[in-house]
């Protein structure tokens, strides 16, 4: 338990980072939302429905990004004893799950008027749904064991195995015919999006990233507090047994 004590001491510095990231979240979110929802132009085909993009795409990016963070932390924790890596993985999965479900719901709301269907089983949508289930599985598995270390280890193995889904999500629109449109921004040619739509989208992307960092820091801190509570309970119990 003494490694956690050292960790908690080191994470005092995280308080400054938390202040920065939460401020940045609020500022960027206000700028991005006002810009995207009121000042950016309507699309010539989608009309006003295009504005869902400013929530949908950043949520999708962060859904993937949280998983990458979780998988890397899990791989690190599988290689040796790194208590912080376990905490990062455990803190990241519920955040990623929420971003993913936001992406799925906003996508469905957009799909009905544009495509004519809330949901279709094309490769992009299905792989994104699998990502959501991977997150749920990870949350359940990590908490399924009485022993903290065993739960973390099982979750880490699942997170690393599930990483194979990330390139599948990203390239599904290129590998197979999908109803979902291909990438607009990360492609060889210039972004297929007008500047006055791309800029608010990027601001929203940064806002969601700052939000993710904020949530991750808060969750790691509360996770450390939970570990400390558990440790003190254990030592109390052992003292009680001795008496």
């Amino acid at each position: 338990m003494h490694c956690f004590a050292k960790l908690a001491y080191r994470l005092r510095h995280a308080r400054a980072l938390l202040l920065w990231s939460s401020t940045l979240t609020v500022v960027l979110l206000v700028i991005g939302l006002v810009w995207g929802l009121f000042f950016s132009p309507a699309d010539y085909q989608q009309g006003e429905m295009v504005r869902i993009l400013y929530i949908h795409a950043p949520a999708a990016w962060m859904g993937l990004f949280s998983y990458i963070v979780m998988a890397v932390a899990s791989a690190v924790s599988l290689m040796g004893k790194y208590p912080l890596a376990n905490l990062v993985a455990k803190a990241s999965s519920p955040v990623g799950a929420v971003f993913t479900i936001i992406c799925l719901v906003t996508g469905a709301l957009w799909g009905k008027p544009m495509w004519g269907a809330y949901w279709v089983w094309d490769a992009r949508l299905t792989s994104m749904l699998i990502l959501f289930f991977l997150y749920l599985g990870h949350i359940a598995l990590v908490n399924a064991f009485d022993d903290y270390g065993r739960g973390a280890r099982a979750g880490a193995i699942l997170a690393v195995i599930g990483f194979i889904n990330i390139p599948i999500i990203k390239f599904s629109v290129d590998w197979w015919n999908t109803l979902h449109q291909p990438a607009s921004i990360t492609r060889v040619a210039l972004p297929a999006m007008a500047m006055e739509m791309l800029l608010p989208l990027l601001v929203m992307g940064l806002a969601f990233t700052a939000y993710y960092v904020t949530l991750l820091l808060v969750r790691i801190r509360s996770e450390i507090a939970a570990v400390q509570v558990r440790a003190s309970r254990c030592s109390l119990r052992s003292i009680g047994k001795r008496l």
Partner: peptide, 18 residues
């Protein structure tokens, strides 16, 4: 029995398209 519209990856403001 069903027809879905497929949207492409281009996003263009109305006046520009015009």
């Amino acid at each position: 029995f069903s027809v879905l519209a497929k949207h492409d990856e281009t996003y263009t403001p109305r006046d520009v398209a015009e």
